[in-house]
Design a protein around this nucleic acid. Structure first.
Lengths: 335, 335
DNA sequence: GTGAAAGCGCTAACAT
DNA sequence: ATGTTAGCGCTTTCAC
């Protein structure tokens, strides 16, 4: 394996017997090059196996065609990421995704690294509540879009789901099926969506005149915590007959903990998941519109790239109730 | 929004009243800078809000700390990607993931783009069977590792699961539970894993003296195709009493198509999936060891980065049978 | 239509 | 311990 040095534009120029500038023109499809020279250069390029160095090209100026996506998790599957990728591709952009691992420090690290690399723009699923470290980059003109939750302390284009409407829909659905005692189990309230959904739930209960004592359980998504929350909600003289889960992992944990007892409870989950239709009963969910979220994020980014001075905007994407069975069961007479 | 020009090292040097080189030293934590100057430079850096330009830094030489990951799909969730990311981080590397969308052209495009950007290395989940377009890059010294399937036409470090052993395990498991007529439904054979698994299945049947007529169904993962395959396997005078599915999506499609009839069939799926334990019956699977695959891929990459001349190796990672119920049912007396 | 020269922002030899 | 001088590989004024 002869570790050949990678040929540069100069090598190509020499090989073709032309000036450096001419090679550059050919590489960039400049129409002002004569056919003769163009062919000669092309021949040299293929002969030497030349590939342009994107770093240098980009350093000198111009766009890289790259947008960074800093998302919480890469392994669990991320429908929005797929939509980001598809939309970006449609506009000649390539998405480079990296994980923030739900850690603020890590987010800072990877996002600043992306800024330092001067990508065309960055799509961010914010972690934590302060993103002031980005204010300088924003001033310097780096286009940034937040999705799923707002970035704190900075003003950037944002795409979020209509969490309150989703909870409202789930709640009214269960009420419509006769449930009076509805419990909510979801994410920690320090997480934006966790707070929004819990708050919306409390508002729904208040509006319907129900006391919420023992029914609202935000917290970490961990088997023990969720088991405890569920037990609390189903215990006592006036137990819950239905539960709204605040995200997909919570839905799954609730189902795991309930086991066959799941048949006694009406369940509506926030967030759709791959096999919700295969479970028995199939799970009724409030589904986020990941395609629209991803598409909108890229669109906002593209518009900001084109015009740094346009007003910052926040887009709220509506959610949809998908009826599958688990949310349509009548209240079960306890014991 | 005053679109300030981004300050450069020269600006910092002027502001601090020192030479460019001194700023560079401070930025790179060179211990040979005097405390007085170091502080002065630091002050200038924060005052101006200077951030180094990674492109230029990288262009001049040295590592970028970036490894590219070209995977089939970003949205569906990719356990290996998580492991890649975790392992990479542990070694101070950042993974930039991008989707090939299962298209050869797209793969070529993104991988060559990564090469052009001179990342420290590339982890690739190959699509299609010719990857010769990479031979030049490999000669030039770009470290590349393939996982899940081998890259065709080039010799690179590779990590794959022991597909044949997995099928063998699944097959013997079903035989052990009394099944004689076992069907296989999986991916197209033009896909490496599809071919390996189908071939292993045929070998198993042959070794056990069973005819395979009507029992082996490789093909695209589409509802209609899978429904047809299933019907074919369960029809006739001597129908299958058990089925091995070649990948997770196929398993799900089979379950969807069977509906409640799934109770009459023993099922072992290749690939574990998120809620296999929540289905009734819970699904017995042959699980790939994604953590080991991801970790090994990064390790191979790191070793190759450190030594371009080391012999190329292929690592086979073993798979594991996870018994959950669907694979332990006895043959159902047809009709 | 083509070529010479300057410089993008940084690091690495060499002084000093 | 700090400053000077070259470039990395490319694009881009400007002349020819």
């Amino acid at each position: 394996m002869t570790r050949r040095k990678r040929p540069t534009m100069i090598d190509v120029a020499e090989h073709a017997g032309v000036a450096l500038r001419t090679v550059s023109r050919v590489v960039n499809n400049d129409p002002t090059v004569g056919t003769v020279f163009a062919n000669r250069v092309q021949a040299a390029i293929t002969a030497l196996g030349y590939t342009p160095d994107e770093r240098a090209r980009h350093l000198r100026g111009g766009r890289s065609g790259l947008v960074g996506a800093a998302v919480r998790n890469l392994s669990a599957g991320h429908p929005v990421l797929g939509a980001l990728d598809t939309t970006a591709r449609a506009h000649g952009l390539t998405v480079l995704a990296t994980a923030t691992a739900d850690e603020e420090d890590r987010e800072r690290e990877v996002v600043l690294s992306m800024c330092g690399r001067h990508l065309d723009g960055i799509v961010l699923e914010p972690v934590g509540d302060s993103h002031q470290y980005l204010s300088r980059e924003i001033d310097a003109g780096t286009p940034i879009v937040a999705f799923d939750r707002p970035a704190g302390g900075i003003t950037v284009d944002t795409v979020i789901s209509d969490n309150a409407a989703g909870i409202g829909t789930a709640f009214r659905h269960l009420r419509g099926h006769g449930h009076r005692r509805v419990a909510y189990i979801g994410d920690e309230e320090r997480i934006f969506t966790g707070h929004e959904r819990a708050a919306a739930f409390r508002a729904c209960m208040a509006a319907s005149g129900e006391p919420v004592t023992g029914l609202v359980h935000p917290g970490v998504v961990a088997p023990a915590r969720i088991a405890a929350a569920l037990d609390a909600a189903l215990r006592g003289p006036d137990p819950a007959t239905a539960v709204i889960t605040g995200n997909a992992s919570t839905t799954l944990e609730v189902l795991r903990h309930l086991g066959s007892a799941a048949a006694d409870l009406a369940i509506v989950g926030f967030d759709d998941f791959a096999v919700a239709d295969l479970l028995r009963p199939a799970i009724t969910v409030v589904a986020q519109d990941s395609d629209t979220i991803g598409r909108t994020a890229i669109d906002l980014l593209r518009h900001r790239i084109a015009d740094h001075t346009r007003p910052v905007q926040t887009v709220t994407v509506s959610v949809e109730l998908i009826v599958r069975g688990s949310g349509e069961r009548p209240p079960h007479s306890g014991a």
